[in-house]
Amino acid sequence: MLNHAIRIALASAFACLAATTIARADCESDMNQLEKALQTPNLSTAAKAALEEAKTRSVAALKKDDDAACHKAIETGLKKAGIPMQ
């Protein structure tokens, strides 16, 4: 019985770790898209400012492990810059 409880606890811990890793991966892929957008030639000053603000907000969200806020920040920044989200 104790062995079964240990297996359940380990499986639960692994599932939580996997979910956190997936969320971080999604935010990181969004951040990669943001970095590519920042390298776009001939960005206007307003577009570059919007992307820089999105970068700041997404890094803060990544540190809090808040994938939804990270995605929203990047989505908003790209929209303000006139760059479509992929």
Rank of each mutant, 00 (worst) to 15 (best):
I8A: 12
D26H: 02
A47M: 05
H71C: 04
I83Y: 04
L78S: 03
D30H: 00
P84D: 11
N42T: 02
L38H: 00
A50D: 10
D26L: 09
C16G: 13
G82A: 06
H4I: 10
M85L: 10
E75T: 10
P41R: 11
R57W: 03
I74A: 04
D66I: 07
V59Y: 12
C27P: 03
D67G: 12
A50E: 01
K64P: 02
T21V: 08
N3I: 14
C27G: 04
A13V: 11
T76N: 12
T76C: 04
I6R: 15
S44M: 00
E53M: 10
L17M: 11
K64M: 07
A50V: 03
V59I: 15
I74D: 12
A54I: 01
K64D: 08
T21G: 00
D67Y: 08
R24Q: 12
K63I: 06
A37K: 10
C27M: 06
M85R: 13
G77E: 00
A9G: 09
A25K: 06
A11G: 05
L2M: 13
I22F: 15
A37S: 13
L38Y: 00
A25H: 03
I83N: 02
K80R: 12
A68N: 04
A69E: 13
S58R: 05
M1T: 07
P84V: 14
G77C: 00
I8W: 11
I83P: 03
N32L: 06
K63C: 06
E28G: 02
T76S: 13
A73W: 05
C27T: 05
M31D: 05
S29M: 09
K80G: 02
L43T: 03
E75S: 15
D67A: 15
E35G: 08
T56D: 03
S44E: 00
I6Q: 07
Q86S: 06
K48V: 12
E75W: 08
S12A: 14
S12N: 15
E75F: 02
A13R: 06
L43E: 04
S58Y: 08
S12W: 07
M1D: 11
R24S: 12
K63S: 12
L38E: 05
E35K: 13
S12E: 10
K63H: 06
A23L: 04
I74R: 00
A68L: 12
I22E: 14
E28Q: 06
A37V: 14
E52N: 13
F14K: 14
H71F: 07
C16E: 15
L2W: 08
L34N: 00
K64A: 13
R24G: 09
A15P: 03
D30L: 00
T40Q: 09
E35L: 13
T45H: 09
I83C: 01
S12G: 15
A23M: 12
C70M: 07
